[in-house]
Amino acid sequence: MTEAPLLSVRGLAKHYQTRGATLKILQDISFDIAKGEVVGLVGESGSGKTTIGRSVLRLIEPSAGAVVFDGDDLTTLSGGELRRRRPRMQYIFQDPYASLSPRMTIGEILTEGLKIQGIGSRAERLERARKALEQVELPPDAINRYAHEFSGGQRQRIGIARALTLAPDFIVADEPVSALDVSIQAQVVNLMRDLQQRLGLTMLFISHDLAVVEYICDRVIVLYLGRIMEIATSEDLYARPQHPYTQALMSAIPSPDPDLARKREILKGDIPSPANPPSGCVFRTRCPKALDACAAAVPQLREVAPGHVKACIRDDIGYPEP
């Protein structure tokens, strides 16, 4: 019997009302993440990646849909019920400077969640904090220092340690290396990959860096203007991208080998406003392969190869690729 996914998202939507307009940030988002799997979430700025990450943990309230974590629909839980499940679900923030309080020692930052949850004595909480610092390769004496005493890369390691102190099963990593110098990014990504493998963590890894996603993720979700365009294993997606949007993203990945470099596909225009998304396929206004039919209906995710799905009108109507 196939094991149920640790996280199952169905029909997730997030809308905001502002000045008489409805901002449709997310629409009909559905995906699963298996236990121990790392799933990447990619797309341009404004696609809704961070909103998905925060919605699945109910850091913000979804407008519609279900988020089932280990059998429980998080969207139906009361505040107290949700709080009791918080230790199993943690978040790594993008900005290592803004996400750590300058007024708290590192020990206080790392033990705050444990204290709120009533876990252990003060000595036991400090011991868990020291162990988390060791896991992210920082010295134990860091526990008595303040965030301003550390570099950006070290601060992000502290952010990772904060998530680990509660021994979570699932982590949302929201652009965890995008604010770091390029020379430091690889170190932090390697650390996260090692921790995931050693601890068996399940992770939703949000990033705009497709090279990082290829390195660390088992599967990848491609998002555009609040809708999923394609889902596939990392190996399959990077070797055989099917959706025109994915193909354009992949063509932008720099290659050190000029013989292997893809022909660059430049998308025209900017991503539309969620206040006025295009009818039908939201990508059609920038798609080089768009048909008249693309304006009439929202394409459904369909399997185009085992474990590989995409949302394209051409598949719905049986229209061949040009």
Score class of each variant (00 low, 15 high):
R125K: 06
A21L: 09
T285L: 05
L267A: 04
L77R: 07
L291C: 12
S183D: 05
C217M: 01
V136W: 00
S178M: 12
A98I: 11
E149G: 08
E61M: 08
T202E: 10
A261L: 00
P288E: 08
Y146G: 08
I228R: 06
T165H: 02
R284S: 13
V136L: 02
G36T: 13
S234M: 12
V177D: 03
T105N: 04
N144H: 15
R314C: 02
G11E: 03
K14F: 00
G226N: 02
G79S: 04
P140L: 06
Q300V: 12
V177N: 05
S8R: 07
R155E: 00
F170I: 12
L41M: 03
S178C: 13
R10V: 00
D141H: 10
P306R: 06
A161W: 01
P322V: 11
P241Y: 01
V68M: 10
I33M: 07
Y16R: 13
C312D: 02
R88P: 15
Y245G: 00
D315V: 05
H308A: 05
P5G: 09
K263N: 14
T50I: 14
T76M: 13
A186D: 04
E108M: 13
R219V: 02
R155L: 00
V304F: 02
K14T: 00
A252C: 14
T246D: 00
P277M: 06
G120H: 02
L164N: 07
S183Y: 07
G40L: 13
E137W: 01
Q197P: 09
R128G: 03
C217P: 04
I60H: 05
L267G: 01
E321R: 11
S63W: 00
P140F: 06
A64W: 01
A64Q: 04
A252M: 09
P306D: 08
T105I: 02
P299S: 05
E37A: 12
A290P: 11
I253W: 00
T233R: 08
R314E: 06
D218K: 11
R125M: 12
A34K: 14
